[in-house]
Simulated scan of single mutants.
Amino acid sequence: MPTPEAADSSRVLVSRIGDDIRRSKGWISFAHFMDRALYAPGLGYYSGGAHKLGAAGDFVTAPELGPIFAQTLAAQVAEICALSDPHIIEVGAGSGRLAADLLRELAARQALPESYRILEVSGELRARQQAALREVAGQLPTRINWLDRFPEHFSGVVLANEVLDAMPVHLVVWQDDDILERGVGLADGQFVWQDRPASGRLRERAQTIAAECSPPPGYLGEIALLSDDWLYEWGQRLTRGALLLLDYGFPRHEYYHAQRSAGTLMCHYRHRAHGDPFYLPGLQDITAHVDFTAIAEAACAAGFELLGYTTQAGFLLACGLLEILARTPAEDAPRYLPLANAAQKLISPAEMGELFKVMALGKGIGHALLGFQRGERSHTL
């Protein structure tokens, strides 16, 4: 159960979302609900004070498994920096573990960036990142700071690990005779699902999906229009370099497969996954898998070139994961076994290896990237 303070915070957020619904004539989109639940100032899951990552939080990400993820990723980051400019922006840096381990590895490779900036909306996570990077910042001659908004112009690497899955999504139901948007209303003071005809950009995207994937009547799925806008903003700002996106998801034909008829929406609370986004708003994570075909389409429309798309396993192996693991002698079991266990989770098809994908979107690179020279899958999009 949440602490009394956390429960009070959630009740305040529930009241404010209820006010939004009443002001909107009894209905808001699920994207609106998800945005408030995750990002309402001071109350949302990512903008409030809830402890999110690691054993004491709600879920574990790849950087939390150990340094081997960042050490392997460093090879690709260093290559992109060498092909553009030695600057890095990490979007949504979590606990700061990825940034700290990445900078240590780049220092060992003599490839430190001239700047490392973090774009972070969570005050709690920003404080954790600053603590995690304090030692690194004191030891490494590199500039680390935090951003509140997109930079005006940028050249280098934009790194986004598990960012796209936390962007608010619209829910759509495809019927025989219409396309409906599933939103949120109120009944007896409780949040309830309510459907209405989809319109505008959402309807257009849903019609495209229907033409390509033929979802059966009653099929429920997510559409992430916000990721289009996010990519457009980076398209306006990135002059040279690449966006490196790591997240769980599928190409469109797999995302909207007939057997996935209830969508991919998932909530995480204290290392338990469930499907009720109305449970303790502000205290649990809400995510949806990524339609990587939609990401590629929006990126190309924003002026990017698709530089590569593959599984996390293929990407990490191409970047030298096994060679990095071999740095530690197998005979040194206390050090080797945790690294080997982390590597197994990162690349195993039964763990993160297949479900997680990596996509690189570039400008002015014109070069085949290291991480996509093994099992490149752009043709599946």
Rank of each mutant, 00 (worst) to 15 (best):
M1L: 08
P2E: 01
T3K: 12
E5H: 13
R11C: 07
R11D: 15
V14S: 07
S15I: 04
D20Q: 13
I21K: 11
W27S: 02
S29D: 15
F30K: 00
H32A: 11
F33T: 05
F33V: 06
Y46S: 04
S47L: 01
S47A: 14
G48M: 02
H51M: 14
K52Q: 01
A55P: 14
V60D: 04
A62L: 04
P63G: 12
P67Y: 06
I68P: 02
I68E: 01
A70V: 05
L73C: 07
A74V: 05
Q76V: 06
Q76Y: 09
V77T: 04
I88K: 09
I89S: 05
E90P: 09
A93N: 07
G94N: 09
L106H: 01
R109W: 07
Q110N: 11
E114K: 13
S115H: 02
V121L: 15
V121A: 15
G123S: 10
R126Y: 05
A127N: 09
R128S: 13
A131Q: 07
A131T: 09
A131Y: 01
A132M: 12
G138A: 12
Q139H: 13
P141N: 02
N145C: 12
P151W: 07
P151C: 06
H153A: 15
H153Y: 06
H153D: 11
F154P: 02
L159Y: 11
P168A: 00
V173T: 08
V173M: 06
V184S: 00
F191N: 02
F191P: 09
V192W: 04
D195W: 03
R196G: 08
G200I: 01
R205H: 13
A211H: 06
A211N: 03
C213R: 05
P216R: 14
L220S: 08
I223E: 02
L225Y: 02
W230C: 00
Y232S: 03
E233T: 06
E233C: 09
G235M: 00
G235A: 04
G241W: 03
L246S: 15
Y248Q: 10
Y248S: 11
F250Y: 15
R252T: 11
Y255N: 03
Y256C: 06
H257W: 08
A258M: 06
Q259K: 14
M266L: 12
H268C: 05
H268N: 06
H268E: 13
D276L: 09
G282S: 10
G282L: 03
E297T: 00
A298R: 01
A302D: 07
A302E: 04
G303Q: 03
Y309S: 10
A313C: 10
F315P: 14
L316I: 00
C319D: 03
G320L: 09
L325T: 10
L325N: 04
A326V: 00
E331R: 11
D332L: 14
A343Y: 08
I347F: 04
A350I: 12
L355S: 14
F356K: 03
K357R: 14
V358C: 08
A360P: 10
G366H: 14
H367F: 13
L369P: 13
Q373P: 04
Q373S: 13
T380I: 07
